[in-house]
Design a protein around this nucleic acid. Structure first.
Lengths: 189, 189
DNA sequence: TATTAAATAGACAAGTCTGTCTGTTTTTAT
DNA sequence: ATAAAAACAGACAGACTTGTCTATTTAATA
């Protein structure tokens, strides 16, 4: 596996920042190459179309997101603390990102529904998150001996997390995620 | 209060459809006037800038949203049924809108954070929704004699509703809102 | 019916956008 | 050191964007 060139990496870094801050549509190729300090020809060498960058951006973001999450969760011992750790993970990120909400949800809202490739990546990302929660609930069950309806409780926690993250963006406050974490804490033994 | 001209009304109708389907940025003034079958000069007479239409659109949408909600809720007798009725209301709308999610959340994700006027309208819309839920919980409390922590339960239901609606868009399925309604049903006596 | 207001069609300016292409310079590898 | 590859700067085409403006036609009102 050949390592990506420095130029390609820089494009993806700048894209990640600008797509989140301004949105995909409002971020032009000219601004991208300007801020990444690269030539236009280099851009179109690695990404034949702007939409190719979008796809690569989501793919990369998804990988990085879960890698960072798992690193954070590895600091927690119990399954319950890991579940609550997801909230802390998202809180930290929101603190660093001016409470702009979830990048994937933002993108989902922006792109047209017929961009199937990207929509599917986003869908898979959220499915993975939901599965991870259910997975942790299974571990929690084993550890505590208390049986729960994993699927339903997992969905409850997932909805609370997503709803709170949307609310963080709308209210521009971290409180919503803090509250949701508290609520989830009361749902777990 | 002078009634709005037919032209202005038609612009707002077309804008509502296109802003939701394509997004604000991707909907050009030329397409708007084309589909509304009006002259460009007429458009700029009523909306000196495209952003003025955006603001009017959100204002109008907010009014219409709550009016339609209250009409729907008036069919329900108990406070509990009214709370669950909000889910039915949103389900109906999503069924009619190809599971595109909440128009306000979509817009919040698309517009830049420094569009303060529109951001504030969206924030107020969601605050109103949350308040309505808490209000209904108060009525529920009186009716059943069961005391609950209205604020926390209200926030829980609100998060579940918003999270499920986001999930409807991402998964392109109504199930999420159906599930969330079920969950909320178990939370209420 | 005459006058005023409102809506029409559509050209146009000035700027943006994506994507292509030419030619030069820098880096890498043999 | 020489040859090949990669990155550079930047002009350019063509299509879009918002917003203005002219000139004509339709509709409402006195």
């Amino acid at each position: 596996m050949s390592k990506p060139s420095a130029v390609k990496t820089r494009i993806l870094q700048v894209a990640s920042r600008l797509f989140y801050k301004q949105g995909y549509a409002l971020t032009g190729v000219n601004q991208l190459i300007e801020e990444a300090a690269i030539a236009k020809a280099s851009f179109y060498k690695y990404f034949p179309a702007k939409s190719d960058l979008l796809y690569a951006y989501v793919l990369e973001k998804d990988k990085a997101w879960f890698a960072a999450l798992e690193e954070k969760l590895s600091l927690q011992k119990t399954a319950k603390d890991k579940i609550l750790g997801i909230f802390d993970f998202r809180l930290e990120r929101q603190d660093e990102q001016d409470y702009g909400g979830c990048a994937f949800v933002k993108l989902s809202a922006e792109i047209s529904a017929d961009d199937q490739a990207v929509s599917e990546l986003i869908r898979q990302h959220k499915v993975r998150l939901q599965n991870r929660i259910v997975d942790l609930l299974g571990q929690h069950e084993v550890a505590t001996g208390v049986s729960v309806h994993k699927e339903v409780l997992g969905q409850t926690i997932y909805f609370l997390m997503e709803g709170a993250t949307v609310d963080v963006r709308i209210k521009k406050k971290r409180d919503s995620l803090v509250q949701a974490k508290k609520i989830v804490g009361t749902l777990l033994y």
